[in-house]
């Protein structure tokens, strides 16, 4: 209530920063790399970058829905790994149906997290941590703790994912379809509007009659579905499923969402920003590899990029006590 004008001004300033900083950063990063290696701007490199970003982007898009609500999904990497194992194991039995089956497993994982959050009133970071543990265990049990290669007969059922048409890997159009679907859901559906309303002001959304619990479950189901989709794409690209396949994905995925400008406090952001965030993460990774930064040291950089992005984007008026 106090100093409303100043708070509003600060909020507007933060909003402007959130709006333009990510895109500017992306352009600057690409410019810097291109200055050192002009071939970076070639079509083939760009397509490769796109294909490499696709998996991360798909997972981060799902996560975006949960973060828009002010929650978090720590289960995405385990769910993706589980989906890859389900795909690898099931494809020899049911062929192409293994793909929807793997995605359905992700939906179920999200639904369990969601119901635990809504009905049992457990914060999402704990329910998803726990469900992540369950998913990891399921993947280990199902795979016999080993990596499961895709059988040769899977080429027809799964191979189309990684095939190319006129030099464009199919994972790029897959990611684009997911982007468009997510954008449509955000901007033109009741569920999308409800998501923003709950994230921006849960008490008011509740009073306005928004089914808050169902929205939360729905967002976690989307996150589970897209994490599983990312797992399927990853398995197709690596030609195997494994219980540790997506183990290094959680941090880059959270980083992609936050760097893109979706605030951890909810209500601000969206999948277009996440696309930019995912591209930044990819470009930074390429750039670091190019400069010779060790793959493992990149985790350090992402850790701090994440912290910085969150520090810039969160709306502190919504969390009087930062815990």
């Amino acid at each position: 209530m106090t100093n409303a004008p100043r708070a509003v001004l600060a909020a507007n300033r933060a909003a402007r920063l959130r709006d333009f900083a990510p895109l500017t950063a992306l352009i600057v990063l690409i410019g810097v790399i291109a200055a050192f290696a002009p071939s970076f701007l070639s079509v083939s490199t760009m397509l490769l970058l796109g294909a490499d970003t696709a998996t991360l982007f798909i997972m981060a898009t799902g996560l975006t829905w949960v973060i828009l609500l002010g929650g978090i999904d720590l289960s995405v990497q385990s769910v993706a790994s589980l989906a890859s194992v389900v795909l690898a194991v099931a494809v020899s039995h049911v062929g192409g149906l293994a793909i929807p089956l793997a995605i359905a497993v992700g939906v179920v994982a999200g639904a369990i997290s969601g119901f635990a959050q809504d009905r049992l009133r457990i914060p999402s970071f704990i329910t998803t941590l726990a469900v992540g543990g369950i998913a990891a265990a399921a993947a280990l049990v199902l795979s016999g703790t080993r990596s499961v290669p895709l059988p040769p007969q899977a080429a027809g059922a799964v191979g189309w994912i990684t095939a190319s048409t006129v030099g464009v890997s199919h994972v790029i159009p897959i990611a684009l379809v997911i982007l468009l679907g997510s954008l449509f859901a955000e901007r033109r559906t009741v569920f999308g509007r409800w998501t923003f309303a709950v994230g921006a002001g849960e008490p008011a959304a509740l009073v306005a009659g928004v089914p808050v619990g169902r929205v939360k479950v729905g967002a976690l189901m989307i996150s589970g579905a897209l994490a599983a989709t990312a797992g399927v794409v990853l398995a197709a690209r690596l030609n195997s499923g494994s219980p540790t396949l997506a183990n290094e994905f959680l941090l880059p995925a959270v980083a992609a969402v936050c760097v893109g400008g979706t605030a951890l406090t909810g209500g601000v952001g969206g999948s277009l920003r996440t696309l930019i965030g995912a591209l930044i993460v990819s470009v930074v990774r390429v750039g670091m590899t190019f400069v010779g930064v060790d793959v493992f040291a990149q985790q350090i950089v992402f850790g701090f990029v994440l912290v910085l992005a969150v520090a810039i984007t969160i709306d502190r008026t919504k969390i009087p006590v930062v815990k």
Binding site: M1, R193, F196, A197, A200, G201, P203, A204, A205, L206, V207, A208, G267, V268
Partner: peptide
């Protein structure tokens, strides 16, 4: 009004 009445960051129309 500011917490329960309105989703404050959202637009008038929304």
């Amino acid at each position: 009004r500011r917490t329960e009445g309105l989703v404050l960051p959202m637009s008038v129309a929304a």
